[in-house]
């Protein structure tokens, strides 16, 4: 499974949707991901890809880890995988 498909599966599970119902262009807000679901998504991403995601719930936009859409999360995780799995 690609990084994108794995992340879509993680997010879909949090908001009780089928992976097919989560378009890569969707924002987390559109999908109904609240602050607690977001923290759970990030935990699942860290576990799945064995990376550390720099994320502080008090400053969701300050870490450089772009959570604005599914696509941006995929891109950010791909960078983390490259950086942290060498």
């Amino acid at each position: 499974m690609s990084v994108e498909n794995k992340i879509i599966a993680i997010i879909a599970e949090q908001v009780f949707l089928e992976p097919g119902e989560v378009p890569p262009t969707a924002t987390l807000e559109e999908l109904g991901v609240d602050s607690m679901a977001l923290v759970e998504c990030i935990f699942a991403i860290e576990e799945q890809f064995e990376v550390q995601v720099p994320f502080n719930a008090n400053q969701p936009n300050a870490s450089g880890f772009d959570i604005s859409s599914v696509k941006s999360i995929v891109a950010a995780v791909e960078v983390l995988i490259l950086e942290q799995k060498q």
């Binding site: 923290v39 990030i42 935990f43 994320f55 502080n56 719930a57 008090n58 400053q59 300050a62």
Partner: peptide
């Protein structure tokens, strides 16, 4: 740590720069 609500650099209540 799991909740990701803690600051790594200090406690700044009511400050615009607060981060946990």
């Amino acid at each position: 740590e799991g909740l990701r609500v803690m600051s790594k650099d200090g406690c700044r209540p009511f400050c615009a720069t607060r981060n946990g």
